[in-house]
């Protein structure tokens, strides 16, 4: 790698101070699985200073708080896969984490890094977006919270401003325990980028799709929701036919591209299939009175 400077942040506040001090020449290093791989192949000059946040303990951890399920940005994919709390409340998050990269990269890579790299095929995005996740951002003027949807601007572009740091992801309390599921289709089972991925969730205790949510990855410049499919589903009796139709509607809401991995037409077909499967996966997690127990 080309030479760069290095400074380790003790905690999130220290990281923001360092980012402000070093300005545009600074780059945040978390798990490094995207950043270091990119740097090795990049024709561009490296950052002046790498601000290493990987030891900032306040950025780690998974916990239930008054606001909901809080996941520190530095939480690794393996920690999400192994979390009893996530297995208990939102197993769809583990379904998404366990198909990222391979064991070695899941042990290093972080959920915050996956969001901040902001590639459209990120596997962390759809489930979080479908669950209306909020993200907390720390900057020189303090903390702010925005919906995850407002973090994503475009491929590899987020809305973070000068010296700002993603510190945590919070799934709002109303959605903790919401039956949901994640689906990914790649060219291999291991270590493959998603051709398409999808997440879906709904409350189904009354036999109808209540508060349905559908999110798609790798089919638009950012991870997106499928609001038309959601609106069509809302209040309908749960059936396989309805799940399939929601998949077909969701496909009309995406704008996939053709690249060396797959054609746009193939991706449109995949959307319909994966949305149907995600809805079925969510349905398998529906139990009576679930919503009352959650809130």
């Amino acid at each position: 790698m080309k030479p760069f400077g290095y400074v380790a942040a003790k905690d999130s506040g220290h990281a923001v101070a360092l980012l402000a001090e070093y300005g545009k020449g600074a780059k945040v290093l978390a798990g490094g699985t995207d950043l270091l791989a990119d740097l090795k192949n990049s024709p561009h000059p490296p950052p002046d200073v790498m601000v290493d946040i990987s030891r900032a303990a306040d950025l780690k951890g998974i916990a239930l708080t008054d606001a909901g399920l809080r996941i520190g940005a530095l939480t690794t994919h393996t920690e999400i896969v192994d979390s009893p709390l996530i297995a208990d409340t939102l197993p769809a998050l583990a379904e998404a984490a366990v198909v990222i990269g391979a064991v070695q990269t899941r042990n290093l890579g972080t959920i915050g890094g996956n969001l901040m790299t902001c590639v459209p095929s990120m596997d962390s995005g759809p489930t979080l977006l479908a669950l209306d996740a909020q993200v907390t951002i720390l900057g020189p003027s303090g903390r702010r919270t925005i919906p995850l949807s407002e973090l994503f601007v475009g491929p590899r572009r987020t809305s973070l401003g000068f010296a700002e740091l993603l510190v945590e992801i919070v799934i709002p309390k109303k959605n903790v325990g919401k039956p949901s599921a994640f689906q990914k289709f790649g060219l291999r089972k291991g270590q493959a980028l998603a051709l398409v991925n999808a997440a879906a969730g709904f409350w189904g205790g009354d036999g109808v799709f209540a508060e349905p949510a559908i999110a798609l990855g790798a089919v638009a410049p950012t991870v997106i929701r499928a609001p038309k499919a959601e609106a069509w589903l809302a209040g309908r009796p749960i059936s396989e036919e309805a799940m399939a139709e929601a998949g077909r509607i969701a496909a009309t809401e995406a704008k996939p591209i053709t690249d060396f991995r797959a054609s746009a037409e193939y991706r449109l077909d995949l959307i319909a299939v994966l949305v149907k499967r995600a809805l079925a996966g969510a349905h398998a997690r529906v139990t009576p009175n679930q919503k009352d127990l959650a809130s």
């Binding site: 290095y6 490094g32 791989a37 070695q104 290093l108």
Partner: peptide, 19 residues
């Protein structure tokens, strides 16, 4: 390049020595 760091298998090529 896989090695075990604090009990976990990682790609040694994707971790800085400083980390």
């Amino acid at each position: 390049c896989t090695v075990i760091v604090d009990g976990k298998a990682v790609n040694a090529c994707l971790m800085l020595a400083a980390q």
